[in-house]
Design a protein around this nucleic acid. Structure first.
Length: 486
RNA sequence: GGCGCCAUGGCCAAGCGGUAAGGCAGGGGCCUGCAAAGCCCUCAUUCCCCGGUUCGAAUCCGGGUGGCGCCUCCA
């Protein structure tokens, strides 16, 4: 079964064929570091994290590059507002970005370049464009001349003539054409600058990705991606710069993730309707947020709401409940019986292939997760049978279940600890209150004694007190099991 | 104004020409001292509307209606 991906450039789903298999060069646009990341940034990061993970699990040798744009007007403005050095500001938000994304299980990219580390490459690229007649200088600023590049508009499906006719492009007298965009900007007094053939200045917005991707991955790239809002002008301009300079294709496939919406409207800084990752992390577990983000196909819009997060939590906890249950079920060293082996065959012969088929279809995590829920019913059913006769499960079965979830979870960024992850999830240490857990544990034992004495009033009272400590209690065949609420 | 995307049960959500996955919520049953967790059954003759193509359409085409996005910084 071949992997198929939706390519923005062609508007179609195509079979994925790397240029130099098994190597895959993947470049995703990262963030401009002038503020904390919101859930929209998280979605993009998680989407491309899953893409990189799944490509690897499919046998590709992926080099994943995700940049930080650490020099830009917004950074300069923000640093002036806060009265701190722009470098310090960028550093602060790079650290915050790494912490937030790390919490969500986003793996580090293989290379995470910063624009300021590649100013030499940027200057070389701008100079080359100028030498080739695609760029012109005006008082220390260098612009890309869109009219000289014939393919302009091919990614976003626009044509330059119509865009010029549109009234929304602001007129800058210094540009030969309203569509021309800055490759290099002269720096004003007090602004960051680098020496260049055009005097002191700094990179324009789009040029850093062209320069860094070529410097690190070479050209053409296999995949270039980012949020849908980057299609125009950012990625369109990258194509113009890179293809004009190199005279060949910039990237084979272009992948773009959809937005996170609030009440059906795009979450964005300008609308003010955004939630930062850290805000949401105060209310929901990182795994739950990740599960929410992967519950819809990456190209579709995704509505953010407490209701949606609550449902994601319930859904995610069904897996954790299963894991905790498997974990505490006693195992014995024997061959699997018919029921056990049939359930594992269902995993390996039906569910795992179905999972991969879904992921092969343009990384359809929503459909892939659907198949995992099917596994849930089968596996819980096996445990029901074991508990009904107060028996033990085969150790091979336990191992098989653990292996299955580690395997599929590896592509999604879940279930790293397999079955062990169940009890760990419900433990209080995750919410940082070991003391309360200790107390609750004592009460749970008292309650168990009361239950054995059939003192139901006492048992119920103890359960209420445990609840007040922030725990629910389940009476299982293996004894009482606590779970942190939250 | 230009370009584009979307519309599936109460809610979320797969589906990409072959006769509606999955989850949440709801109803019934089992299990339980009661719960919780879990299991079983149930829950869209129908996919915004109207035409068309086809043996066959949620899926393709045309026209509506509604929502959204990009065209300026934006994941």
């Amino acid at each position: 079964m071949a992997l198929r991906v939706y390519n923005t450039l062609t508007g179609k789903k195509e079979e994925f064929v790397p240029i130099h298999p098994p190597k895959v060069g993947l470049y995703a646009c990262g963030v401009t570091v002038y503020d904390y990341c919101h859930i929209g940034h998280a979605r993009a990061a998680v989407a491309f994290d899953v893409i990189a993970r799944y490509l690897r699990s499919s046998g590709y040798d992926v080099t994943y590059v995700r940049n930080y744009t650490d020099i830009d007007d917004k950074i300069i403005n923000r640093s002036n507002e806060e009265g701190i050095d722009w470098r310090e500001l960028a550093e602060k938000f790079i650290e915050a970005h790494d912490a937030d994304m790390g919490a969500l299980g986003v793996q580090r990219a293989d290379v995470e370049p910063r624009a300021t580390e590649h100013v030499d490459d940027i200057i070389r690229l701008v100079k080359s464009l100028q030498d080739r007649g695609f760029a012109y200088e005006v008082d220390g600023d260098v612009y890309f001349e869109v009219a000289r590049f014939k393919g302009y508009g091919k990614l976003s499906g626009r044509n330059p003539e119509e865009m010029r006719a549109g009234a929304r492009i602001e007129v800058d007298e210094r540009k030969r054409d309203p569509l021309d965009f800055a490759l290099w900007k002269s720096s004003k007094e007090g602004e960051p600058w680098w020496d260049s053939p055009w005097g002191k200045g700094r990179p324009g917005w789009h040029i850093e990705c062209s320069a860094m991707s070529a410097a690190i991955l070479g050209q053409p790239l296999d995949i270039h991606g980012g949020g849908k809002d980057l299609i125009f002008p950012h990625h369109e301009n990258e194509i113009a710069q890179s293809e004009a300079e190199a005279g060949r294709e910039f990237s084979r496939y272009w992948l773009h993730n959809g937005f996170v919406n609030i009440d059906s409207e795009k979450m964005s800084k300008s609308l003010g309707n955004f939630f930062t990752i850290r805000e949401v992390l105060e209310r929901y577990r990182p795994e739950v947020i990740r599960f929410f983000l992967l519950s819809t196909h990456y190209r579709s819009p995704l509505d953010f709401s407490d209701q949606a997060l609550d449902e994601a939590r319930i859904r995610y906890e069904r897996f954790m409940n299963l894991f905790a249950r498997v974990h505490r079920t006693l195992a014995e060293d024997r061959q699997m019986n018919e029921v056990e082996s049939r359930s594992l065959r269902a995993l390996s012969e039906e569910l795992e292939p179905a999972f991969r088929q879904a992921m092969d279809d343009d990384f359809n995590t929503a459909a892939a997760l659907g198949h995992l829920f099917t596994a849930l019913g089968t596996l819980n059913g096996v445990l029901d049978g074991v508990e009904a006769v107060a028996g033990k499960i085969s150790g091979h079965w336990k191992k098989g279940v653990d292996g299955f979830f580690r395997q599929v979870g590896g592509s999604l960024g879940f279930f790293d600890d397999g079955i062990e992850g169940g009890p760990a999830y419900f433990a209080a240490s995750r919410s940082g209150d070991d003391e309360a857990e200790g107390k609750a544990q004592v009460l749970a034992e008292e309650r168990e004694d009361a239950r054995k004495a059939k003192d139901w009033a006492r048992a119920d009272e103890l359960r209420d007190r445990i609840l007040e400590l922030g725990f629910t209690v389940q009476d299982t065949p293996q004894g009482p099991v606590l779970a942190a609420k939250k």
